[in-house]
Design a protein around this nucleic acid. Structure first.
Lengths: 144, 144
DNA sequence: TTCGATGCAAAGCCTTTGCATCCTG
DNA sequence: CAGGATGCAAAGGCTTTGCATCGAA
């Protein structure tokens, strides 16, 4: 994620006539450059340090707003809860079955996923999501 | 799905020392050849016709058991609820944004998704899941 | 007869909603 | 000042769990 996420999103909120509150800024700062794909609760827990009174509902609301602005994407990798990624460029996710970490995988999607012509004829693909499940380097060396 | 799903799974239940109950048979029959990717509630509703007293918990339990036996796979396509697929061969899923239907897409996974060498070195991929989101033929013609 | 399966209800989680209050613009 | 944002609590929806009873083997 390039530097300036927080500032850019603040500008976009203003553009949209939405308000820039201290809570939102705190959430944005936490997301800025964050590649850990936190859940709502993860974000709430962390932001609580700087902002002890922030409510879970505010975190939910803010993430919904950010998702609508496409400044964050939700990834449904974990059946129990949503995770969020401030990097909205198209990329894959690799989920470790052991530690449940989520790593970004940047690869040329167009070449990585070729939709067969037969499928393209009966389904207009707007978006392609790829999840790789397996074992990350940390866990495989720890196990070995 | 080839013919014989119900019979095969019944045999596997017996093999594992698990019991073949009328409820389980009813669920298996409903899943046999089913390509609609039903949710737990969908299954419960349908099976209730033949079996009015079956409880939701039983459907949940049975699906958990079947998933452990790998005779059904859960697909997390819908953030609100799990969907189940009795076809456990590797394949993709195409989700229609309009009608929310889920279609199976059989295509050569190996060629469709090439994992970059750089990724393969830091992550051992066991399973690849591809979701195509877009608009199905029905909905695109209906809209046009 | 045995031990897993069932059914019911309650509890658990994650998420959404309602509403009075707050505060940004 | 006005209207969106916040915080709290309650409600919602999906799933799990506890437990007494049932029934397949």
């Amino acid at each position: 994620m390039r530097k300036g996420y927080t500032q850019r999103v603040i500008a976009r909120l203003r553009e949209q006539g939405l308000k820039v509150t201290p809570q939102r800024i705190a959430i944005l700062k936490h997301l800025d450059g964050n590649t850990s794909h936190p859940s709502v609760e993860d974000i709430h827990r962390k932001v609580c340090r700087a902002f002890p009174t922030i409510s879970l509902a505010t975190v939910y609301n803010t993430l919904d707003t950010l998702e609508q602005l496409r400044e964050v994407q939700s990834i449904s990798v974990d059946p129990h809860r949503k995770h969020y990624d401030p990097d909205t460029r198209p990329h894959h996710h690799a989920i470790c079955s052991h530690c449940h970490s989520i790593q970004d995988v940047f690869a040329d999607l167009a070449s990585a996923v070729r939709v067969p012509t037969a499928v393209a004829e009966i389904f207009r693909v707007d978006e392609t999501t790829v999840h790789l499940r397996g074992v990350c380097l940390n866990c495989s060396t720890a196990t070995a």
